[in-house]
Design a protein around this nucleic acid. Structure first.
Lengths: 151, 151
DNA sequence: TATTGTTATACTCTATAACTATA
DNA sequence: TATAGTTATAGAGTATAACAATA
């Protein structure tokens, strides 16, 4: 699909909006199947493979308010998907890490989601798709750096 | 910026989120300068260059609830940026169109916004940027078609 | 006195349902 | 009876401010 005939284009945000909307909608059934909220999944992804030293740091990493994720952490902990213990060196802080089961669940869900994304990415020619993903990854990283600076 | 070393990548939604956030944040000062809300701007863009036959159709086109835009239309009309008159052929409906001033304002704002976007797009090599924009336009169109079908 | 986590509250945004006017 | 537009209301999601524990 070429640009509009006169070379004009929609604003980036106007193009990204609908795309985000269908992608988020497509994630819902997968998340529901595993009893995860969007924020629950974001936490599992945000924890990565090394422990995180404070809840506030985790919240910032996933773009949430620190108060926003407390209930989420409660639930994940009750389900044995994460561990949350006071830092012995500073008992105000909570050390956070994935359990084995948490990691497994995260990987399962991520596999399903990225498989679903093929419905969209598959509509792009392979070479264009690779460039798109590389460019998106770069822009996303720059955007995150910018957000981190302004917080 | 290459993919992650192991070839894995973040979910599309996870990459798009921060990008949308900084783009929307960057639009705010421009909109404020012209006393426009985000929805107000969306309406000006949604009206395009031909009249729209009903408010509901306009709302759907910009992804809003029909009740959502009523106050927005009131304000735009008071400012002389749009015209809103009962359709003579069916007086339940309202014919909507941009005034000359509305079109001018829309074009001014859009120019500013797309100029601001260069801060991000400019970080991509020119050839990669062109491919990214083409791919994004295509995915966005597919997403919009999908959303329209499910409404 | 400052920081981490927590709770309660208030605020914003949005959708839902009920109403009017036309058809 | 059905549709376009409007209004009022309720709900979801979010941030803000106050508080307890620890440093």
């Amino acid at each position: 699909m070429p640009e509009q005939p006169d070379g004009r284009r929609d604003d980036l945000a106007a193009m990204l909006g609908p795309l985000v909307q269908v992608l988020v909608a497509a994630e819902q059934p997968v998340l529901a199947e595993h009893d995860l909220s969007m924020w629950g999944y974001a936490v599992l992804c945000g924890l990565g493979d090394e422990p995180v030293r404070t809840q506030a740091a985790l919240a910032q990493a996933i773009g949430a308010d620190k108060t926003r994720i407390i209930g989420v952490l409660d639930t994940l902990q009750e389900r044995g998907l994460i561990e949350r213990e006071p830092d012995p060196a500073d008992r105000r802080a909570r050390l956070l890490r994935l359990t084995g089961e948490g990691r497994r669940l995260r990987d399962d869900v991520q596999r399903s989601i990225q498989q679903g994304e093929q419905r969209w990415l598959g509509r792009l020619p392979a070479d264009e798709r690779a460039v798109f993903l590389r460019a998106l990854a770069r822009l996303s990283r720059l955007a995150r750096e910018d957000l981190d600076r302004s917080r």
